[in-house]
Design a protein around this nucleic acid. Sequence first.
RNA 1: GCCCGCUUAGCUCAGCGGUUAGAGCAUCUGGCUGUUAACCAGAGGGUCGCAGGUUCGAAUCCUGCAGCGGGCGCCA
Length: 472
Amino acid sequence: MGKAPGLYAPVLRETIADLYRDPPLGQRLAVEGWVRTRRTTRAMSFVELQDGSTLRALQVVLPHDQVARERIEADLHTGAGVQVWGQLVATPDRPQPFELVAEGYQLYGPADPATYPLQKKQHSLEFLREIAYLRPRTRTFQAVFRLRSSASFAIHQYFHERGFVYVHTPILTPSDCEGAGQLFQVTTLPLGAVPRRADGTVAFEEDFFGRPAYLTVSGQLEGEMLAMGLGRIYTFGPTFRAEPSHTPRHLAEFWMIEPEMAFYDLERTMDLAEDLLKYLIRHALRHHYEELAFLTERYEPSLLAELEATKESAFLRLSYTEAVDILARSGKTFQYPVEWGADLQAEHERYLVEEYAQRPVIVYNYPEAIKAFYMRLNPDERTVAAFDVLFPRIGEVIGGSQREERYDLLRRRMQARGMDLSAYEAYLSTRRFGSVPHSGFGLGLERLLLFLTGLTNVRDVIPFFRAAGQMG
RNA sequence: GCCCGCUUAGCUCAGCGGUUAGAGCAUCUGGCUGUUAACCAGAGGGUCGCAGGUUCGAAUCCUGCAGCGGGCGCCA
């Protein structure tokens, strides 16, 4: 058996991705990774080694006259972490282009087959959710998390290429961004013995900030303030909603991209949203064909074709009024009635996207009454300059609007909704000093990833999921 | 929050009132001159989610609870 090269050995130590990119055939080298499978015959064993650098595995041949069979059978089970060294040899007559003929190996960490949960067969996504810490050992999650990483990078690249400033809005906030769901309260007060005032209410002046504090549900309001000086900004960070939504599309902690642009009207903002989404799809197709092909084969047969079609398609733009009209004339029977003034239900959105348009749809100019206070009132005074981007399979992926920049109008509408204006003093003040038209939107990273990966549950596109009653 | 479904071996599932509960894969043992989800032979492995109830008899029917999944609502 050859001498162990060790961690700082004078031999090549390469990732498997490097080997496939430019195989150093004939050279002696060391590779590190985890055993995916092992097959043993009388004279030799075969190990498929993966290291996370690529979905492809490296076949390692272990001749039993080099490495004792008993040792291999005791050590090299699925999941074991090892370093293997030997010579890289071309194998033109075999399914793989080359393989490593081992001289020896070092077992970093065994994986006892009696207790190691993963096997070499495919597991259900539901089962893997129970052992989230091992999901990165599977090719599915390597593909998904690599796409997540790459899409995140592409988002930054897209905005930076266009002069947007990446801003960090606070995670801890004193107030709600109205209409964005329930908040997680953050406190250092002892929950077992909360200090109270004479009238029995909680004495928040004794809390850490001297007032109630929450985890942010959106960076939008702060983003608007930053855009009113920097021009074009975007946020990209975690947001938190304490809404007990039990669906495959909701998380309590998720990542959101929120651009906010001074001097943008609704149409220009819709253009930006559409362009961004197509850019991200093109980026994934160009840089991650291997991952997308794998996910297409495993999970969503139409994934590649759908991405190809979407990156070229012109999203269909319909005003809310047009959309209601189309639904009313569709001849379809919907569970929820279609009438002007009611919000579009999931079944309505699905009809518009999957049957009527058969491509992404942007619905804009929604009734004022069903949308948030900060959306700009249109001249008809019945609708606001809001829009949703609806995708096949996953529904709403972006929600945005032109913001109400007129001080008196904004104030009046907030009052009409019974909001406490004192909590929004800074926000309102931006409308008193040099207020200009501006717009923005929110893109849910996990929902985008459902579209890019072909998976159907957002718990599977974030490494460790947090949802009502679940911390994966 | 409302509605529906599922829970049987390590995993994926079959069994849906009637002998000692099954299969494939995994594991273990042995075999195999290069395997590719290797193959061949054999073995071990189960309080049938939990708690009650109905019945001569319950994995199977009923009730409650829990976990998971899905639909709806809310939204990203």
